[in-house]
């Protein structure tokens, strides 16, 4: 079943097309990775899917009319509420999704993010890794069917990246669908079921990692990334 079906999406900023007519679907239960260099339109695509930006052309069909109740999203920034503790942010985000958490549920959610000891710490004072974990925690506080994560592990050290990957894998085990964008090919290789490569506002190719590697005759995803996202420098591919 398609959770989201995007048809011929176009988005312009200042008369310039940043998304040039892209089509794709998100299948229920998959972990889908949106891959491409900075500025190719990954975040814009995500913003359109989430209803933050309106596409200038094209349409997005959702699997249910009240889809907002069943989507959790983490944008590139970690949008915590200033002056609120980690625990309060969880409560507040739950309220935004019409969910009321009991004390026990808050404890479980904090445990899931490995943040039990930081429950009373203001969210903005947490380390970057802790903030990212909390950001994913608040995304998942209402146990949505679709989780959208925009570069969830950007700027993190290896251990923090590992923890984020584990959280995404847990979501997949719980039959949640995950769409995430990333530059980290190790991460993509470990967790993604399907990939969408973007370049210059277009989808260059999409498919399962092994199928794409076979098609482009490369042995790993980093080589595939280099092949599908040409360098701006001459002499490199």
């Amino acid at each position: 079943m398609h959770l989201i079906s995007a048809k011929s999406l176009v988005k312009k900023f200042h008369q310039k097309n940043v998304i040039n007519g892209i089509d794709f679907e998100i299948e229920q239960g998959e972990i889908l990775a949106l891959i491409g260099p900075n500025g190719v339109g990954k975040s814009t695509t995500i913003a359109m899917l989430l209803g933050i930006l309106k596409p200038d052309q094209g349409s997005i069909i959702y699997w249910r009319p009240d889809y907002r109740d069943y989507v959790g999203a983490q944008l590139q920034s970690t949008p915590f509420f200033e002056g609120y503790t980690a625990e309060e942010n969880l409560k507040l985000f739950a309220a935004l999704y019409h969910t009321k958490l009991t004390k026990d549920q808050i404890r479980v959610e904090l445990d899931n993010c490995h943040l039990s000891e930081a429950a009373k710490t203001p969210a903005v004072k947490l380390s970057l890794g802790q903030q990212k974990r909390l950001a994913i925690g608040v995304t998942n506080v209402h146990h949505p069917e679709l989780v959208v994560l925009d570069e969830p592990s950007a700027g993190l050290d290896p251990r923090a990246r590992h923890e984020i990957r584990a959280m995404i894998q847990t979501m997949a085990k719980n039959r949640q669908t995950v769409l995430f964008s990333s530059h980290d090919m190790d991460e993509v290789e470990q967790i993604a079921d399907r990939l969408i490569f973007m370049n210059d506002g277009r989808i260059v190719d999409a498919g399962k990692p092994e199928e794409l590697m076979e098609k482009y005759e490369v042995s790993n995803l980093e080589a595939l990334y280099l092949k599908l996202t040409p360098s701006q420098f001459r002499g490199e591919y």
């Binding site: 989430l50 999203a73 920034s77 915590f80 200033e82 985000f93 935004l96 999704y97 019409h98």
Partner: peptide, 20 residues
């Protein structure tokens, strides 16, 4: 300052994603 901080952190953008 509170509203500016929330805007800069993307809180209002994120609210568009929620059912509230």
């Amino acid at each position: 300052f509170s509203v500016l901080a929330q805007r800069k952190r993307g809180v209002y953008k994120l609210l568009r994603v929620t059912p509230m």
